[in-house]
Amino acid sequence: MSKILYAFDDNKNTNYKYNISEDTIIYHFSINASSNVEINLIKSGITLYYYYGNINYDNNTFKIKVNHLKNNTHSELFNHGVNVFNNSLNYYVDGVVLKECSKCICNQENQIINIRNGKSTICPNLLIDNFDVDSNHSAYIGSFRDDILFYMMSRGISRQVAIRLLLYGFLVNGNDDNASKFDKFINEINNI
């Protein structure tokens, strides 16, 4: 059973530092805020899942750095943001594996959906100093794909409702039960 931690930023910039020594899932929801997150994986064999959902209206930056400090540590980051207006949203996502840490898994998946013409940036960095690491990263910036909207609309769902469904799924990241603890975040999705 993994330990579950929550973070919620509501229009307030916040710094977080975690020293993780057991399997952990962190749900981080954010409304219009910059955040700086540093995570140290300090015990062998542990796994971290990090889910970040972010609604952005002004110029903001999300920085997260995961340091693999022990052997066999595993991190999976899922960072999803929606940039609503014509402002900038920047993600700096670092996965660090030290030379003395072997057999680590270090993965990250980053996506920002621009609703209008915002300037969004994702810098997915994997700083790997060991030869036996399993590591992947991905980054997508853009709008929801036309083929997805076509499929949904072909079942009678209007464009507006289809986008709302997609936004919810994207920001909640399959974690409905956990996101529902943050009513304000869910309500904000409906206001986008």
Binding site: D147, I148, F150, Y151, M152, M153, S154, R155, G156, I157, S158, R159, A162, L165, L166, Y168, G169, F170, V172, N173, G174
Partner: peptide
């Protein structure tokens, strides 16, 4: 538009149905 055609009763069973992550079948 596409959704209005579907509301009129037209249904396209697609050759390669689209994958949509985050939206459940039930909700859809």
């Amino acid at each position: 538009d596409v959704s209005e055609r579907a509301k009129n009763g037209i249904f396209l069973c697609m050759q390669d149905p689209t994958v949509i992550e985050g939206v459940s079948n039930s909700e859809f």
